[in-house]
Design a protein around this nucleic acid. Structure first.
Lengths: 157, 157
DNA sequence: GCAAAATATGCAACTCAGTTGCATATACAC
DNA sequence: GTGTATATGCAACTGAGTTGCATATTTTGC
């Protein structure tokens, strides 16, 4: 299968979802598809605005729409900011992520080979298990000594 | 060992940390110790204010202080609100939690028996692994049909 | 193509968690 | 008790995310 431009791929995905194909949706999904890590609303806004201005609110609404239509998924980070990643078709449900304790970057990981076995109190009913690995990303690992951006207690959950 | 009042236990813990023993710290830690699940700043405020009024900002600052001193730990939920739990001495570092998809309640779990094996991209360095199981809590599981509080795409991460 | 209906966008104003600066109150050492 | 370090209260702020409503754009039916 030949490599396609994110913008074309995005359009195809949205069209396949049977919904209105708008420039905002195409460009935002394309931005997610092209991204090397999960993007905040602000990052999406910045990347898309290179082409033309999109309203803040539209960014939120489109991201919400993409999430509801399973073209993207959102990840809660330690900084209370949602990050969004394009949902790749193979692993439709990403439940494993990595978060950098220094720069806050988040990336999607493959599912772990061994699933942990969780013991819940009686009456509780599990639906999904999310795995968040924290540490230092490739950019931050070498620079770890001069740590300037750490939060109150880095890495705690 | 005989059961102690949370308020006494809290005072002992704070004194043991070698820090100033204030009413706000004692009462807030006692509230966390007595809580059946992790509390938001607002829940802490409400529970403590039965005794006497504590400023919103003080609540934030004391919770931060408790976290920094490892007497409590904070958990990021799907609703962008921090929840705090008393750090129990046996498992000093809680990294497994349960979040209810319906009411948002969070509780601390024991570590899973089998730790998952995570494969990271090269250059990445893992420091902690957090496990978040989502589903329905004992209160919400029976009432699951009339779901009124679900978020855009419930349970996604 | 063109008009009408359906829906997405932009704008303004809002909510709510969490933060910061600074003056005042309190715990503890002496 | 008195002095000093530090915790608290107050007010004002930041920044993410939301809502209502008017306007623009996509789609559908012709």
């Amino acid at each position: 299968m030949m490599p396609r431009l994110p913008i074309d791929q995005a359009e195809t995905m949205i069209r396949a979802a049977g919904a209105r194909v708008t420039r905002a949706r195409i460009e935002m999904l394309a931005a997610l598809l092209a991204a090397e890590h999960a993007l905040t609303h602000h990052e999406v806004e910045k990347r898309v605005n290179r082409a033309h201005a999109i309203d803040r609110v539209t960014v939120y609404r489109v991201l919400e729409w993409l999430t509801a239509n399973e073209l993207a998924h959102k990840i809660a980070g330690s900084d209370r900011v949602w990050r969004f990643g394009a949902t790749n078709k193979e692993h439709a449900r990403q439940h494993a992520h990595f978060e950098c304790n220094r720069c806050g970057a988040m990336i999607c990981l493959d599912e772990p080979d061994t699933k942990p076995h969780i013991r819940l109190p009686s009456g509780f009913h599990a639906q999904e298990v999310d795995l968040l690995t924290k540490g230092l990303c490739a950019k931050c690992a070498p620079a770890r000594r001069k740590d300037r951006r750490r939060r109150s207690v880095p890495g705690w959950t």
